[in-house]
């Protein structure tokens, strides 16, 4: 297990904090002294998974770097809802340049710090899925290949939400977006498309790659902290539900993240040097249908009657992940 939950303490380490654990065993988020890298007054939608994921990840990174950190951010929701003039919600050194270049900006910052002998200051570059898997892919791959000392975090909400929910290379099959509408004989995104960036990152054989969700804070914090223990290129891919784009209840953001993992649709694992080193086991396995049903982007799979064939194809994706990564027994195939 990437993060070994602490057991037998009522809630163990599943919850954010736990008064029964010693201070050093508690999460960064449970601390009154957490950075709040992303603070009050930002303009994210209600229940925004990305706002949550960013604060989780960056606060953990701030803790891990003793607050010696700078962040480069791609264009997208996270940039727009945090820095509309004249207000910013960031409390850390932060720069937004362009949509497709956050990895390269990160590289530049890292190079600058290296030239100045300030490698104690660490660099995080971040983007949504569009800024990662699509428009930002070239610079990201370059950053990986050069093994630049940057942690890149992708907040994956599986479409271009900022521009009104268009399809990205991370949009899952059958999902309705504004450019893969739920019309025609094959409504929603086609099967057989899309790219798996964590695996592509691994193919670069960079020191560290991990996936995480906003449902398992401790696992996410552990991975950020671990990523910060390496120098060189590192990649963390965080699933962050988007109530707007997914058509889900704002209150369901964490629940859906949890279900994405528990169905096997979003495998949670970590890899070092291109090899999977551990996976997060499914704790209470769920059929994909339970994950799909609460999301309006999949409602065509259930109305007017359940499209069992398509749901079955999605289940097959989950099953393949389960077998490929060994999500039920921790043994990757």
């Amino acid at each position: 297990m990437p993060f070994q939950p602490i057991k037998f303490y009522q809630t163990g380490s599943f919850v954010v904090g736990n008064r029964l654990l010693s201070e050093d065993q508690r999460s960064v988020q449970s601390s009154q002294a957490r950075t709040n890298s992303l603070t009050l007054g930002h303009r994210a939608c209600q229940g925004c998974g990305e706002a949550l994921g960013a604060r989780y990840a960056l606060d953990a990174a701030m803790r891990a770097t003793d607050n010696q950190m700078v962040v480069a951010n791609a264009t997208g929701c996270l940039e727009v809802f945090t820095t509309p003039f004249p207000e910013t919600s960031w409390q850390i050194p932060w720069i937004h340049s362009l949509f497709g270049n956050s990895a390269a900006v990160g590289t530049g910052i890292a190079a600058a710090l290296r030239s100045k002998g300030r490698q104690d200051i660490r660099v995080v570059a971040q983007a949504g899925d569009g800024g990662t898997v699509d428009i930002g892919f070239g610079p990201l791959s370059g950053m990986f290949e050069r093994n630049d000392d940057v942690l890149f975090i992708c907040y994956d909400n599986e479409a271009y939400m900022n521009t009104g929910v268009q399809r990205s290379g991370a949009t899952p099959p059958a999902a309705r977006t504004a450019t893969t509408d739920a019309v025609g004989p094959h409504p929603g995104e086609d099967f057989g498309k899309g790219k798996n960036l964590p695996l592509i990152a691994m193919a670069h054989e960079i020191p560290y790659v991990a996936t995480a969700t906003v449902a398992e804070l401790r696992d996410l914090e552990y991975k950020v902290e671990k990523a910060m223990s390496f120098h060189g290129a590192r990649y963390i891919h965080v699933l962050v539900p988007c109530p707007l784009g997914w058509g889900s209840a704002p209150s369901d953001t964490i629940r859906l993240s949890r279900m994405a993992k528990e169905t096997g649709l979003f495998p949670v694992f970590e890899a070092e040097g291109g090899e999977v080193t551990s996976v997060s086991n499914i704790r209470h396995q769920l059929p994909v249908e339970e994950y799909l049903r609460p999301q309006r982007r999949y409602q065509h799979l259930f109305r007017p009657q359940p499209d069992t064939e398509t749901i079955g194809r999605i289940q097959a994706i989950a099953d393949k992940n389960i077998s490929r990564f060994g999500l039920l027994n921790g043994e990757p195939k």
């Binding site: 480069a72 390269a104 530049g108 910052i109 890292a110 190079a111 710090l113």
Partner: peptide, 11 residues
């Protein structure tokens, strides 16, 4: 973009 990052970091 690298130059942008580097310059923004004071280099």
């Amino acid at each position: 973009s690298v130059a942008i990052g580097a310059s923004a970091a004071g280099a």
